[in-house]
């Protein structure tokens, strides 16, 4: 019996959220007294294995010859092959585009219940009960899974990275996969940029930023802080920022350690997507803006003026 975790690489590297996932899977394997097996797909840089090792990985099914991004149906077949091989009690994935696309397929194939976007460790193992967001962050649900195989997709930033000693043993993983029904004609990558799902700190702009041209300083602040950038819905609707940055009830639901809201009023639909952030900072020129009711720290003031000052203050701190 084992815990199977799929660790996803981006451009051959394992990002922070994947080390979080590795630490989490390790913890589940210890708590439930099972072996841990890691699945990796696509080409991974040599030095990355040591990092995975340091977070508890031992046996690794290394699908290095499989393409990194594949059709969901075909990708699911690769997962099924790994499941047949190791017969896991738990399958653990990230709650990101990949996990969202694959977990439900495993669920159907093996009649396995899912806790999607599970927040940290389960409330109980026997019976298995996990906590997740519901009503777009306005509530939490306790979900009980009755099946033998449990599928968990871990919500980013809900479990602390923990170092533990592992000893990676790579094992070639070469399942035969069917031809995909869909065909990729073009792929665009956001290279270098930190993704919302990977970020500890998120710097977010609203309509109070006034126009697309004013995003330079906001990006500079994000860059200095090692943060990802996000925005409110009207900002992406206006085309000031790309859709994938839109957070809130109808965008991405995030829970970073620090969320900085710049010129965002704090509508209920916006807050739904960010309220589980550990610390919220709001800067808004309107002292009555509802964002202040949800924030931990606030400044009533003009974002144009304050962002450059924050950059200076942050750089001073880090000197």
């Amino acid at each position: 019996m084992s815990v199977l975790v799929y660790i996803e690489n981006r451009d051959g590297q394992f990002k922070k959220n994947q080390l979080e996932l590795m630490s989490y899977a390790k913890k589940i394997s210890e708590a439930s007294n099972q072996d841990i097996v890691t699945l990796s797909i696509g080409n991974v840089k040599e030095e990355e294995w040591a990092r995975l090792s340091a977070h508890g990985a031992t046996r690794v099914l290394n699908g290095e010859n499989l393409p990194n991004q594949i059709d969901n149906e075909v990708f699911a077949q690769a997962l099924f092959a790994a499941i047949e091989l190791v017969q896991p009690k738990y399958l653990i994935l990230s709650d990101n585009n990949t996990g969202k696309a694959l977990a439900p397929r495993v669920s159907v194939k093996y009649r396995a219940g899912i806790v999607s976007g599970i927040l940290g460790l389960p409330i109980s193992y026997e019976p298995f009960i996990g906590k997740k967001r519901a009503y777009s962050g306005k509530a939490f649900a306790h979900v009980k899974v009755n099946s033998d195989l449990k599928v968990l997709t871990l919500s980013p930033n809900s479990f602390e990275i923990k170092e533990s000693s592992g000893n990676v043993q790579l094992e070639a993983f070469e399942p035969t996969l069917p031809t995909p029904k869909t065909k990729v004609v073009q792929a665009d990558k956001q290279t270098g940029k930190l993704l919302l799902s990977e970020a500890d700190i998120v710097v977010s702009g609203g309509r109070g930023m006034k126009s697309a041209d004013n995003w330079g300083p906001l990006e500079e602040l994000a860059e200095a802080m090692g943060a990802a950038t996000a925005c409110s819905r009207p900002v992406s609707d206006e085309g000031w920022r790309p859709h994938h940055e839109h957070v809130g009830q109808t965008g991405k639901i995030i829970g970073p350690t620090l969320y900085i809201a710049l010129g965002i009023s704090g509508a209920i639909q916006h807050l739904a997507g960010v309220s589980s952030s550990k610390v919220i900072v709001a800067i808004n020129k309107d002292p009555e803006a509802p964002i202040f009711a949800a924030a931990d720290y606030g400044i009533v003031g003009d974002v144009q003026k304050l962002i450059p000052q924050l950059i200076v203050a942050y750089k001073e701190l880090k000197q």
């Binding site: 009960i129 649900a141 979900v143 099946s147």
Partner: peptide
């Protein structure tokens, strides 16, 4: 395959 057994609300800030 699964059931919601309980709901809770976020703690007040």
């Amino acid at each position: 395959l699964s059931e919601w057994i309980e709901l809770e609300l976020p703690e007040a800030k």
